[in-house]
């Protein structure tokens, strides 16, 4: 009976899906961040959401096209000497498969535009700031003690500076729950200030005033994750 046959197929598909879900559940701890490190700032969380959204569309396109390719390879391999029908194209199909990528592009662009606008919001007037200077081969971080409200010594110039060396990476400490502005400066070559858990990097360009803002939302030590890539 055709209906039972159909049911059997559905049951088999169900079984396959459950098996796949089980497999994903087993290995998912390894992919907790969908491949990205833990986001530790509000901005990083937004970027990770965009990454996951893009990844889902990418995987859908990948499996659809790769699946169609495999199907064609298996289904349409040569079985006899008869020539296949000589189809030269189809305007309707061309319009359809031009439109589908255009729609995907509009969706991806719109979402990424919104996230871009949000993660690049300027710092509030009273935000804490850190002056970051890149050099070959380490970083200097300068905080203003006045910003921190801890400048009790009237003779001090109100700043503390932490300078790293090639061998000893400097440690940067920032507060949780409030926006911090990073002002990037270089006197030699182009560096990039990059903390993987921020999901963000910005070039440190001689002659340019590059700034970005993050709001950390998680405590922890992320030492050694600041890297420079001179060039």
């Amino acid at each position: 009976m055709p209906s039972t046959g159909k049911l059997r197929v559905i049951r088999r598909v169900n079984l396959l899906i459950s098996a796949a879900l089980l497999a994903i559940a087993t290995i998912s701890p390894a992919f907790a961040g969908w491949g990205m490190p833990d986001p530790i700032t509000d901005q990083a969380k937004r970027i990770q959401d965009l990454w996951v959204f893009t990844l889902i569309i990418a995987l859908a396109v990948f499996f659809a096209v790769e699946g169609a390719l495999l199907y064609a390879i298996i289904r349409y391999r040569k079985r006899g000497d008869e020539l296949p029908k000589q189809t030269h194209g189809s305007t309707a199909l061309e319009i359809v498969w031009t439109s589908i990528p255009v729609l995907i592009v509009i969706a991806l662009f719109s979402y990424s535009f919104i996230v871009l606008r949000d993660v690049e919001k300027k710092a509030p007037e009273d935000a804490l700031s850190v002056d970051v200077t890149g050099f070959q081969f380490s970083w200097e971080f300068v905080y203003s003690l006045n910003d921190l409200g801890t400048n009790t010594d009237p003779n001090a110039d109100g700043q503390i500076s932490i300078i790293g060396t090639a061998a000893q990476e400097p440690t940067l400490v920032i507060p949780v729950g409030e926006p911090v502005e990073f002002r990037l400066k270089s006197n030699d070559v182009i560096h990039a200030f990059y903390v993987p858990n921020f999901h963000y990097k910005l070039d440190v360009v001689p002659g340019r005033d590059n700034r970005f803002v993050i709001t950390a939302n998680e405590t922890g030590e992320f030492t050694g994750s600041v890297r420079s890539c001179a060039g």
Partner: peptide, 21 residues
């Protein structure tokens, strides 16, 4: 196909901030 798909991540500018370089 993979080379086309994994290039789109860099077009999503905020994701590019993470994966650039």
């Amino acid at each position: 196909l993979i080379g086309g798909i994994n290039g789109t991540f860099s077009a999503a500018v905020p994701v590019d901030f993470a994966i650039h370089d």
